[in-house]
Design a protein around this nucleic acid. Structure first.
Lengths: 109, 109
DNA sequence: GAAACATATCGGTTTTTTACGATGGGAGTT
DNA sequence: AACTCCCATCGTAAAAAACCGATATGTTTC
């Protein structure tokens, strides 16, 4: 993951509507949700939400898939993992003791 | 870490200047760098960089400390860890197999 | 083919962000 | 006290983001 990719992912998640939508999609893995269902879950217009969704898709965090006349949206956890690894690399620069607390907490899952 | 905190941290890192500055500070832990040194490392005006720095501080990612007539800026790795944990919680919702690849890669450090 | 449906895109307005020079205030120096 | 240095803040202009209604595109249904 390059800096540009990480900036796109960070920016995509840095908005309440998009963060909510992404987390909703994560909770609905691997089935996904239609765009319309996501619009309903938000309190925004269909067109406004569509542009938010486009930001998530452009960042690679969401992968759309055609199904009949509707689009099924699915979270791309690979990109989320790549983003976390990107951040972790900063955290761990040479000093492993800095990230050990993180690993300890992450073993919760 | 609340949603509001996470959004602030994501937004703070979602800018090339601020991401660069934060990573530079991480690499200079635990000594930190003065604001002036950070300005030099950027290609921006002192005033412009100051507002960027304020965003990082507001998000808690950077902790300023007075030293004489200059400010020493230090990265707050606790907030970075909290942010990563916040993202990981989404990733791991109930399904531990989703985060195992991440943990495997993180053991690099 | 016409109608209904799901989603994307186009204009346009409002709000927010970014960037700069200039100014101000606190902290050392002479 | 006057001066210099470091940094924050103010005022402002330009750029980007957010939001909406209206329209366009492609798909199923009748």
């Amino acid at each position: 993951m390059t800096d540009v990719d990480a900036l796109a992912a960070l920016g995509a998640l840095a908005h309440p509507t998009r963060l909510d939508a992404f987390r909703l999609l994560v909770r609905h893995e691997p089935a996904g949700l239609s765009t319309g269902q996501l619009v309903e879950a938000s309190d925004l217009t269909q067109s406004t939400f569509s542009t938010h969704l486009a930001v998530l898709v452009k960042a690679g965090l969401v992968k759309p898939e055609k199904r009949g006349r509707q689009m099924i949206q699915r979270a791309n956890l690979d990109v989320l993992r790549a983003l976390m690894l990107f951040l972790a690399k900063d955290c761990c620069q040479g000093r492993q003791e800095l990230c050990e607390p993180l690993l300890a907490e992450l073993t919760c899952c």
